[in-house]
């Protein structure tokens, strides 16, 4: 499959990228690792006239601890996140999710920024970043602005990014010590997108949920928080009965899609089962 013709512009800096996007407007697309954009272009679902490649921009590939946050350069690959000691220790949810994206070759090329900007409701990072209350640094013609995750994922394949803006950094609040996280993804084959997935992060102290965050993938047009489960657990005892009852609320208020992989009812069922399993995993031995 061959994409439609386009002109290729490789830029070396973020301001150059912003200038090219401003010049070509809707006719242009930003290319990072290319593992969302190139497949769409090959299917001719995306036919930009200009592709602005930020893959060679220096200093957009890093994972670092900042004041109270872990910061990810937009070009950080899934592989780097999967294997980062800092991420494994501080944000095990993200390391867990990264390790389940695509396959090793895809994880070598795909980037966190690209996957976030793609805003696929069955994507893994959007749910994690919403669940973790991440914030997004975006640079456009009028300078930099910060978008909260709750405002970033606007709709199916639609983020709050404007056509002339470049996502440069994603920051995730560092959780308290001893916080656990996991991403449970249900799919039929290992490379597939999630039929449903659950992102969970919990801080358990004295057998009580001090902090609890649950997110859902592929349960609607955008990633979602399972707010009813969170409310049912916050401050409550981390015992099997409480977990089971709370997990039953996982699909509350959702409108999951119908497709070849499953019906809405099947997805609602999966959401409750995966939520329970995630909570059991996070509280085991606590």
């Amino acid at each position: 499959m061959i994409p439609a013709s386009f002109d290729y512009i490789a830029v070396k800096t973020v301001p150059e990228a912003v200038a090219e996007l401003a010049k070509h407007g809707d006719e242009s697309k930003l290319l990072a690792g290319g593992h969302s954009l190139i497949p769409l272009m090959k299917l001719r679902l995306s036919t930009p006239s200009f592709v602005v490649d930020i893959g060679r921009v220096k200093d957009l590939n890093y994972i670092r601890r900042t004041d109270g946050h872990i910061a990810f350069g937009a070009l950080t690959t899934h592989h780097d996140i999967e294997f980062s000691d800092l991420v494994k220790e501080q944000l095990p949810l993200l390391a867990s999710a990264a390790s389940q994206i695509g396959d090793p070759q895809v994880r070598n090329r795909g980037t966190m920024g690209g996957a976030a900007a793609h805003a696929d409701p069955s994507g893994d990072y959007p749910t994690c970043l919403l669940t973790l209350d991440a914030e997004f640094d975006v640079v456009g013609p009028n300078g930099r602005r910060v978008i909260k995750a709750s405002d970033f994922f606007v709709g199916t394949f639609t983020s709050a990014l404007q056509p002339d803006e470049v996502l440069t950094e994603i920051r995730v609040p560092a959780p308290p010590a001893g916080t656990r996280g996991t991403y449970l993804k249900f799919s039929r084959r290992s490379q597939d997108w999630a039929i449903v997935a659950v992102a969970a992060q919990a801080t358990v102290k004295d057998r009580k949920f001090q902090e609890i965050r649950i997110g859902l993938t592929s349960m609607g047009g955008t990633p979602l928080r399972a707010s009813a489960v969170e409310a049912a657990l916050r401050g409550k005892s981390a015992d099997a009965d409480t977990i089971r009852k709370a997990a039953e609320k996982a699909a509350e208020g959702t409108d999951p899609p119908q497709d070849l992989n499953g019906s809405p009812d099947y997805r609602r069922h999966l959401a409750t089962v995966l939520t329970r399993r995630a909570l059991e995993q996070l509280t085991a031995g606590r």
Binding site: G34, H35, I38, P39, H79, P104, Q105, V106, N108, R109
Partner: peptide
């Protein structure tokens, strides 16, 4: 790094 050269 191993890559899928149909997607580069």
């Amino acid at each position: 790094h191993s890559v899928k050269s149909c997607t580069v």
